[in-house]
């Protein structure tokens, strides 16, 4: 059984390594993700549009604000789920 698991794991890892040959090199400035117009636009325009220096915060709280609201809901729901599971007897 463990041999089977090891085989499955090695198969998955080998497949990923084979597919990973096409990925851009580490630190490559010409990678498609960096050359995408969306990335360039975020880096150039986010300060004028949102007024904050940190691009990650600008993306997180402004452009993807709705997603982050869902994120906060996820962590809130996780807390409530743990309370429901473990705090059954006292309220």
């Amino acid at each position: 059984m463990k041999i089977l698991a090891l085989f499955a794991v090695l198969l998955a890892g080998g497949m990923l390594l084979y597919a990973g040959q096409d990925l851009p090199a580490f630190g490559d400035q010409n990678s498609p993700a960096y050359q995408h117009p969306m990335t360039t636009r975020f880096i150039e325009e986010s300060e004028n549009e949102t007024g904050v220096y940190n691009i990650v915060t600008a993306l997180l709280a402004n452009y993807r604000g709705y997603d982050t609201l869902g994120e906060t809901t996820v962590i809130f729901t996780a807390g409530m789920a743990v309370i429901l599971l473990l705090r059954r007897r006292e309220l």
Partner: peptide, 12 residues
Amino acid sequence: LSDITGGTAPII
């Protein structure tokens, strides 16, 4: 994937 050689953190 997001790393660039010689790049800094994305803070203007």
